[in-house]
Design a protein around this nucleic acid. Structure first.
Lengths: 243, 243
DNA sequence: GAGCGTCATTGCGAATTATCAATATTCAGA
DNA sequence: TCTGAATATTGATAATTCGCAATGACGCTC
């Protein structure tokens, strides 16, 4: 159960400039979808746009910087660190998700540590800006609510799929989650390292490795290119149900 | 892992009359806290007030009735039923929590089955009423967001505390959760039955029973009265960390 | 291409947990 | 108080999973 996670604390984020929300080509996916272009004309604090390399720590649990983040592209893991040094991945979020929303609800600090899994492209939004926009555009409040509801759905799925059943079932479910939410256009997805997979399912690293290796031998899971994999969805669904 | 759950579908709810939100003595705890008394003057659809006996099914996953529920008193479990007949308890909610909020986000049906654990006193609020109030009082939207954030926090805690570690640790955490969130004024709390405890932790019923019995022998957990128990919090915290 | 560090895989014995079956306890009614 | 049904506890054994250590695979640098 213990995974020490030697995640290096590199925050060599590359600043990509001020965000131009009014011209953002993916705004319909983001937190500010449906706000009028004019909403961004009088912002008191700037929204910055960053590119983080894999492994970057976006923020740490217990700290407080007055920013929330909207993920344009890439995968972020929300990690809960236990006192004994082990850590559990609570949630995996991708394109269009907003993180750090607990700050909007009055929380003094972030509830998790957020770490970039691959290269992450995001906008860093001051809490004050969100509040300003919320007061001028009450509709934004609904979008925040929608984000929360989405994350609640993901958390529930996590509990049900990754927290129930034997190890083989959980790993099968995990691969299905990766396939469903994080596959690229070509249908391939990043297979996380075994340590992360263990931290997501609550299973020992070696056990995860054994099961993944088994899936590979059975050709249920196979490498597509680099660290991208593809899988036999039907076979995994069968496994996830009946072991 | 398989628990068939012979939960009887009894919905012998006792109607307690129309709710008078403007005079509700616990409104500050509820979804409509901080709305002015006048907010309730022109409601198009009525808010009803019910008392449900233990075991009542408030609603079932996949169905849709246009109501959300605000729990005034009592404990409700949100259950996810798997195809194989087993079921997992995703969340336990009590006084002041609102359930069925997924309907506000456009979901066509409830995401879980909601079952009263003990006697539950709640208000049944038409979705249309919430929408009406939201449009007249944008502040309500924030309260819905707060409810969602609260539930997300609970779900995260569930993942971390009840989904990680060995069986003994999980059961210890579960008892601590019951103690923290559901103890009465006298500090005692209902110890759920073993089947429910198993469905919350993802552990076999017999294993849960063994561990609970062990706790009782060690006087870490002891009966206070009827089905109310008290526990040694420090000892359980120790156990939850180091097995 | 050799050397090196990191991560994945595998073997193996120990510890934990599931599962089936039997026994005890509790609780609601009669 | 007695009785039967539902729950809880316990025993025994099989299956799974853990945890440690060894080995293998891969990428990177020199």
């Amino acid at each position: 159960m213990g995974n020490e996670s030697g995640q290096s604390f590199c925050t060599n984020a590359e600043w990509m400039g001020r965000a131009h929300c009014d011209k953002c080509h993916i705004r319909q996916l983001m937190l500010f979808s449906e706000l009028p272009d004019t909403a961004f004309e009088h912002l008191l604090a700037p929204i910055d746009h960053f590119l983080y390399p894999p492994g970057s720590v976006l923020y740490e649990a217990g700290t407080h910087k007055p920013f929330i983040y909207s993920i344009r592209r890439g995968m972020v893991k929300l990690v809960h660190a236990a006192q004994d040094g082990s850590n559990r991945i609570v949630r995996l979020l991708g394109n269009g998700s907003a993180i750090g929303l607990e700050l909007l609800d009055g929380s003094k600090s972030y509830h998790h540590t957020a770490i970039a899994v691959n290269q992450v492209d995001l906008c860093k939004i001051p809490v004050s800006t969100v509040r300003q926009l919320e007061s001028e555009h009450p509709a934004l409040c609904k979008h925040v609510g929608k984000q929360l509801q989405d994350q609640l759905n993901i958390a529930d799925q996590w509990i049900v799929a990754l927290g129930t059943g034997a190890a083989r079932q959980r790993v099968a479910q995990l691969v299905l989650v990766l396939e469903e939410f994080f596959s690229e256009d070509n249908g391939a997805f990043i297979l996380l390292n075994r340590e992360d997979m263990a931290a997501m399912t609550g299973i020992a690293v070696e056990t995860v490795s054994r099961i993944v290796a088994e899936f590979k031998r059975q050709k249920i899971l196979y490498r597509f290119k680099d660290n991208f994999y593809m899988c036999n969805v039907a076979a995994l669904q069968e496994l996830s149900r009946y072991g």
